[in-house]
């Protein structure tokens, strides 16, 4: 029997839009708007409830059949698959929100290996499928809050990051973990130029990386990750702004000094190393107090209050005890 302890971060029942209300509202807007204007809503509201159509490779069928359920986010209504796979920030494929979905077919996700190096006893090149087969996949429904003030709810499939990292036996010198995205302009066309110093880089403090919430994701909606969502393996750190959750990872390095992330490099006054979701600390150019939970309605967005650490305060606040989060933004 599953005994559910209610955490403070869990939404209470009345905060979650009831599925039927949600669908009715869409239905209502579809009928009234469509009738008034004689316009079909087309792609906006067609088939919003369908699941992940991708199937895992034969070698991983077994692992994906045995995805363990977890209590994470059970009370949330996941954002429709069509929305989370068509509205992405993945600059390697273009700056438009729909570019990743349109242009990421060139990404070759098999075979995929991850280079592990730095302050650890076990280093080398590891095949992703071996990492997946050795671990137990679980589903976790997490809120994702983008620094641009929109948010979604995504049912990820993955392995707790700590479980993976511990296998490499980081030494006492490993104070931070550095991650790197694939660099291959043939597969990622936008890497040919632009103002970003490719590859995309991110980092976590070792205790953040070992926090039980941090997930190494290899799938979503019950199957593998679509390319535009960071296939075949990405980080998910739900208490931080979305850009911290680096996609298509090829390198993990244990380091002693705090690494510089791509966004710290691009705009150090706007993006810090921690990038924790924090409604008290606004982005220099816009407010972080509220967010638009996607999908927006036809006219009105679904605006809600942004919570400290994206609502995961109980799980992660202790990591930052005594820190001035205005300075360490």
């Amino acid at each position: 029997m599953l005994i559910k302890n209610k955490k403070r971060s869990d939404c209470s029942e009345n905060e979650v839009t009831d599925q039927s209300v949600y669908l009715n509202r869409r239905q209502f807007m579809k009928v009234s708007g469509g009738a008034a204007l004689g316009l079909g809503f087309g792609k906006a509201f067609a088939a919003l409830q369908s699941g992940n159509p991708l199937s895992p490779p034969a070698s991983l069928q077994d692992a994906f059949h045995r995805i363990a359920e977890t209590p994470f986010g059970k009370e949330e209504t996941p954002t429709p698959y069509e929305v989370t796979t068509s509205y992405n920030n993945f600059y390697e494929f273009g700056y438009g929100k729909d570019d990743p979905a349109k242009r990421s077919a060139t990404l070759e996700t098999r075979p995929w290996s991850i280079t592990v190096e730095g302050e650890a006893e076990v280093t080398g090149v590891f095949d992703l499928e071996d990492i997946i087969k050795e671990a137990a996949l679980e589903e976790r429904i997490y809120r994702l809050r983008c620094v641009e003030a929109w948010s979604m709810v995504i049912p990820w499939v993955g392995i707790p990051l700590a479980d993976v990292l511990k296998k490499f036996k980081p030494t006492s010198k490993a104070k931070f973990v550095y991650f790197e995205t694939l660099y291959d302009p043939k597969q990622m066309p936008e890497q040919r130029g632009g103002s970003i110093n490719w590859p995309y880089r991110e980092g976590l403090r070792i205790d953040e990386a070992m926090n039980p919430l941090a997930l190494l994701s290899v799938g979503m909606y019950g199957s593998v990750l679509p390319n535009q969502n960071g296939a075949p393996v990405r980080l998910v750190v739900p208490w931080k702004y979305g850009f911290k959750s680096i996609k298509s990872i090829v390198k993990i390095r244990f380091v002693e000094k705090m690494p510089t992330s791509t966004w710290m490099d691009l705009a150090p006054n706007e993006y810090g190393f921690y990038a924790n979701v924090n409604p008290q600390v606004d982005h220099p150019r816009w407010s972080q107090k509220e967010e638009r939970r996607l999908p927006s309605g036809v006219i009105f967005p679904n605006v809600m209050e942004t919570k400290m650490f994206n609502g995961y305060e109980d799980e992660v606040a202790s990591l930052y005890a005594g820190m001035d989060l205005k300075r360490h933004f």
Binding site: G42, K43, L294
Partner: peptide
């Protein structure tokens, strides 16, 4: 109204 700017038209 035809959903071209979906899901974040604003």
């Amino acid at each position: 109204l035809s959903g071209q700017y979906f899901p974040d038209p604003g």
